[in-house]
Amino acid sequence: MQKHVIDPKSVPGWGVDADPENDPTYPMKPHRSDLEEQGYNWERPTQQPIDVEILHSNERPNVTSVFGTASPPQGLSGMIRRWAFRWSENEYNHWLPLILADRVNVVEGVIEDIAHGKFPNIWKEKGYNASWKHDRTSLILRLSAFAAVTAGLVLWMTSGDDSKGSRKKKKNKKKARYYDENEYYADDRYYDENQY
């Protein structure tokens, strides 16, 4: 708590229009306290032993008295999360890497599943049994759209390779012709020059 450099009571007119009931947080904040004036301190609860890695916001000086211990940071996603926590909650550098880490974590989760000999049952995990029961048409449409987009992408990439290949071949052919012609003209010029 910063000490007041100026004693407010020494300021002419201090508090003459104060209205304690004009509190926009009422009734969310029914118990006004003097802590704002006296400084913020309270008897902290016993500290929970910090026996897993806890990333704490740099907008506070310490780890809270209790905390959750679910899924400590690990792997590549953990590295990204550690980096993100170097930045305050005010920064995109904090939140956007955390979203990236979440996506990386999904891939890590699949790898972890497979490493444990368990291939994720995507159909079941996505709750498609319920969609099949209650919203079959929409599910079929969605899956068809997904299949169509996937097939389209595969086709485009495949044909893209071919067309790239054929473009390359055409380009090479053209290039070859150009060089041939160049050679021809060069030779022509050579002979012309020789003639001169």
Binding site: K29, L35, L55, E59, T64
Partner: peptide
């Protein structure tokens, strides 16, 4: 918490202050 703002406790979430 002393002010009844139980959704804003300062001793239960180390990861974010909001």
């Amino acid at each position: 918490c002393q002010q009844g703002l139980y959704g804003n406790c300062h001793e239960s979430n180390p990861m974010a202050t909001a």
